[in-house]
Design a protein around this nucleic acid. Structure first.
Lengths: 240, 240
DNA sequence: CGGTCCGTTGAGTTTAATCAAGAAACGTGG
DNA sequence: CCACGTTTCTTGATTAAACTCAACGGACCG
């Protein structure tokens, strides 16, 4: 049974038995981490590549005025920048959202792996390009979408990403995100998020629990968001 | 006399004579492009890495409702994603802002260059990490900064980036950006940008010309923005 | 020299933030 | 297992920020 990291990379390109063995070696050592635990903090010198095997994490930054902006969610199989070891210090922090299983790969080991396994290298660069597209899509959302579109768009992104890694079992999908986290991800106040969610609930697009929410109708959300999934690079160039 | 691309890479790591010769070969063929010319459009299959040798360009995306969001500015020496050739199609467009000198490197050539020249590879990955930091900083700006802070923050970013590549000759710095471009970069309306600039002008932080603007007091802007330059990774790990 | 694009300003409207308060769920320790 | 404190969610009323609409002037271009 392959771990989420390996399974995700397989979606981005073919891997040989040897590639998979190398990935298994490198991600074999993992640790269990409680929710809301910083994996690395702004200012720390990064020495390891962080790989999320199970659970959710988030990249975030705290501003001088105390507010927080979340810049990305990491789902099972996702990892932080491959070449992060080149930096003198982190410019943001990464924290678990839920209890998680985390592998930390020493940067030199990751460099060696990329060098020796070209399939892995290609798959990882494809994954990274997708992440960058996501980053740009967030900018587009924050700049040019209304608050309800913005919420719906994030939901679509998360739903689609979750689908691809086999996390969506029915048409519905439960996210482990509180309204406070959503607010910090979308640049709004929790109060306003709450009102937007109320609206989406009344349209039967989603329902809300304490500390999490359920996407009931992703198609409707996509319509509200004006969602274009191209940015997630569903259609990568056929791997050669 | 080395071109801007090579000079920029030298800032990110030491290059040998051989490295430099290879970079010169690859960027020797360039073309002059007028302002407001699309270099590549959303939906196009990317086959070349775009390198800006002179002038400014921007990444942008047009939404279904016709609005535009700019997600990045490319300055002399900057290039688009190295591995862009892996994608089936672009999820955004890239356009010149000013008249520019552009080199387009076929993706396989770029791959070969990175393979054969590890110094170049390292320098480029460092540059790319910096770009990603910039992307995240934009998200933070859009989500959690007031409009005046947001404008001031972008000005600081651009001033600092321009300084590093030797584009700032006095303490002042002229940017070739219209208020419309600024508005589309910062997720505001041109009308509101105009009022914010008026405010910054009255504080003697900047002045404005038609189609461009001048940063008069970058220190004051940094103060207004709450600017933290760490995200631009001034202090990279000492190249080894 | 007429047209177009950009910048500027004012007035009115919309959107989202702020302030405030209470309810419901959760966690912990006795 | 219950009591208590804490966090999250919810709602209403008010304020602040930014957008929209509209109009006009100046600069640049052919």
């Amino acid at each position: 049974m392959l771990n989420r990291f390996i399974k995700k990379l397989q979606d981005f390109g073919p891997l040989s038995v040897d590639d998979i063995a190398a990935l298994e070696r490198i991600s074999a050592a993992y640790r269990r981490v409680p929710a809301r635990t910083d994996l690395i903090r702004e200012g720390d010198p990064p020495t390891h590549v962080i790989v999320v095997l199970e659970g959710w994490a988030q990249r975030y930054k705290i501003l001088p005025n105390g507010t927080r902006q979340i810049t990305a969610f990491l789902m099972p199989g996702d990892c932080c920048d491959l070449h992060v070891g080149m930096l003198a210090q982190m410019d943001h922090s990464i924290q678990t959202v839920t209890p998680a299983r985390i592998a930390t790969v020493p940067s030199p080991d990751m460099d060696g792996l990329l060098d020796r396994h070209r399939n892995i290298q290609k798959a990882m660069y494809r994954a990274q390009l997708t992440d960058e597209g996501t980053l740009r899509a967030w900018i587009v959302s924050m700049g040019r979408r209304t608050s309800i579109e913005r919420v719906a768009h994030l939901m679509c992104e998360l739903y689609l990403r979750a689908s691809r890694i086999g996390l969506v079992l029915t048409t519905e999908f439960e996210l482990p995100l509180s309204q406070i986290i959503l607010a910090d991800a979308l640049g709004m106040t929790p109060v306003h998020i709450n009102r937007v969610l109320k609206d989406l609930r009344s349209q039967a697009a989603m329902s809300v629990k304490r500390g999490s929410m359920v996407i009931v109708n992703p198609v409707l959300l996509a319509q509200i968001a004006g969602f274009d999934e191209n940015y997630l690079h569903r259609r990568l160039r056929t791997p050669s």
